[in-house]
Design a protein around this nucleic acid. Sequence first.
DNA 1: ACATTATGTGAGCGGTAGCTCATATTGTGT
DNA 2: ACACAATATGAGCTACCGCTCACATAATGT
Lengths: 214, 214
Amino acid sequence: MSERSRTNPRKSASQQRSRLTVDALLEATARILVKEGYDRASTNKVAQAAGVSIGSLYQYFPSKEALVAAVIDRHIQEMMELARDALARVRECAVETAVRELVKVMIDAHRVNPKLHRALVEQVPRVGRLENIESIDREVSELVRQYLEARRDEIGVADPAIAAFVCVTTVEALTHAAVVHRPDLLAEERADRFVDDVTRLLVQYLREPQPQRP
Amino acid sequence: MSERSRTNPRKSASQQRSRLTVDALLEATARILVKEGYDRASTNKVAQAAGVSIGSLYQYFPSKEALVAAVIDRHIQEMMELARDALARVRECAVETAVRELVKVMIDAHRVNPKLHRALVEQVPRVGRLENIESIDREVSELVRQYLEARRDEIGVADPAIAAFVCVTTVEALTHAAVVHRPDLLAEERADRFVDDVTRLLVQYLREPQPQRP
DNA sequence: ACATTATGTGAGCGGTAGCTCATATTGTGT
DNA sequence: ACACAATATGAGCTACCGCTCACATAATGT
């Protein structure tokens, strides 16, 4: 076993209990960010809330920033998974179907952990390693651009890059604002209308540009 | 003069030099927020940069939060002035003219002090008195809703409140993102196309809903 | 069973943050 | 000229922050 163990990476970089420690720390960080905000989320408090010593915290995270960055990464992963899946699913669909599906998915993505999402967006300063919250947009923009380019005949916008930017920024802003600030718009009965509106907004934009009237 | 001075508010709540002190503090705070971020903007540093003693700072602002809130208020006032003026100006205009004008104005508003705007949005935690950055949207939404309601015959959306929310959120997000993250889209020659795109996006949305094709 | 490594502990260090207060300086009305 | 209010000063207090380190305990390989 000696030779194989040297060539192969170790089965797990850590024993099980260390994974538990890390998990507890991430959960506690998220909880405290939501409940108390970034400023008041001291490392000592996080460690205590996680039921872990402050020393252990610094064994896995070299700084407070790294700790919060890990929480952000994890949260982004969860949201991106939904988005990536959806984008793959609609690659062959017509524009309207695709847009509607993506709008729905983005709403769901913002509902994965809306309180944490809000805390991350509103509390955590976008500096250094912490500016990744916006990296979603960049990756999604690229995927959407590819989709639009493949369907160039079906859409009427001159520059797919601008169109992708417009679509992604708009959907992100509307779904975020709706989930965070206007949950009433997403209540059972009204939700469909909201999705319809956003879908129409984008589909009409993507179709032929309406000729200027004299 | 004794009687009049008791009934009327004092001509100025402060002597001139105190106004200068307050101004210096606000300017310094803005400068440091931009250059160093919220975390590193300590009250001592702000006072020093303003050329004012720390004691004076606390004579006018009871806390760091209040100081930053004052900077936010002042910045919002500057942006809102543009927006309010524009809304008043286009109240009687047709939808397309109005939307185009408002898009332009929102770009200008974000250009009033883009670095400060970015710092306020990205660095300052939205807690307590500090959550006012978003109050712009609320006031503007209401004004837009009124406009849309007055032109109900010209537009095809069922719920003016939803439409106002969609329009305001979209314009704010697109202009903000463009100014802050994609200044290339606003370069001399391309800017018009961007304005056209955003205008078209909204105007088509506001017009008659396109009947579903079978 | 034992040596070795992985993991966990928490008292406490250096530093800085926000903020106070006793005192000094400047402006104002008479 | 003088009294009194308005304004300005900055040394220094408390509190907590992020973080380290010398040591203890648990798991692993042989």
